[in-house]
Design a protein around this nucleic acid. Structure first.
Length: 271
DNA sequence: CCATGTACCTGAAGGC
DNA sequence: TGCCTTCAGGTACATG
């Protein structure tokens, strides 16, 4: 489910809700959700900050780190102290883990499909070393983006989705970015011209920032930390629009399996 | 290195 | 209504 904009939206909200709070207890309701790779105790440690790299949420604690990946249906919901019926109010029917804070408030991790994970680690750098630089990291330049494409004959969609070179893009925003840049999803990554690479670079930033302004996209499961859906699904140009006319040229949008995923694109506009 | 398939899970939607 | 298949915002791992 959540890609970079959805994770960013949740983080922005959690920032004012849980930074500074201290963990009283972690309650696991599905044992595979929590992956503990640290010898430190979580109890008594406090949330010092909330960071993000790609789709990973990073919570620095006093002596270790909690790292969360929401995968397809993961959802984080904050329950203030005294909010005893938040599960019913927000339709949290698949709560897998609860962080109980010392002030009585809670952070609930709900995850229908059980793919999401909460990792407890000592070394973030080591844990995320195979994840490429975040798509919205200010260090990116179009020139560097172009250079990274070189030597990779794999399709541009697979390249963007791998998370190894640039992180944060999933199925929705990859398709939306490639449409905006007029680039066919099966083009070999290294075949992009410097001009095309710049168009794609600009398109990625536009698409992601627009989605963040719209509080993410809700297809079915995604909700923010307050249980509210996003609005960005109203701005899709190709995602879920197969068979409908392209907004630019009128040609029906195609749906095709690319890089193992359903891929939507305009065969006329994207070359 | 690269592409493809499978596994992990649940539930919604569509076909019959 | 019910049964069966397919599909879904993701990633890791095995296989050619």
């Amino acid at each position: 489910m959540p890609e970079l904009p959805e994770v960013q939206t949740v983080i922005a909200e959690l920032r004012s809700l849980i930074i500074g709070k201290c963990i009283r207890k972690i309650e696991t309701l599905w044992n595979k959700t929590l992956v503990n790779r640290s010898q430190k105790s979580l109890e008594g440690q406090c949330i010092r900050d909330i960071l993000r790299k790609g789709k990973y949420l990073i919570f620095p604690l006093n002596e270790s780190y909690l790292i969360i990946h929401l995968r397809m249906t993961g959802r984080l919901s904050f329950a203030p102290s005294g909010a005893s019926r938040i599960e019913e109010e927000q339709n949290l029917n698949h709560v897998r883990l609860i962080i109980h804070f010392s002030d009585g408030s809670r952070l609930l991790f709900d995850d229908t499909r059980k793919f999401g994970r909460v990792y407890h680690v000592d070394n973030v750098r080591e844990f995320l070393q195979h994840v490429g630089r975040d798509a919205l990291n200010g260090q990116w330049t179009p020139e560097e983006f172009y250079k990274k494409l070189q030597g990779h004959k794999t399709g541009i969609k697979a390249w963007l989705m791998s998370q190894r070179f640039i992180s944060g893009l999933g199925n929705i925003y990859t398709d939306e970015s490639l449409f905006r840049a007029n680039i066919h999803p099966e083009r070999p990554a290294s075949s992009l011209t410097p001009e095309e690479a710049r168009r794609l670079f600009d398109a990625i930033r536009f698409i992601l920032q627009q989605a963040i302004e719209n509080m993410g996209s809700t297809i079915s499961d995604y909700r923010d930390a307050y249980g509210n859906p996003g609005k960005n699904q109203n701005y899709f140009k190709v995602y879920k629009r197969e068979g409908k006319p392209c907004f630019v040229c009128g040609t029906p949008i195609l749906k095709k399996r690319v890089a193992g995923r359903s891929t939507r694109f305009c065969p006329q506009c994207q070359r």
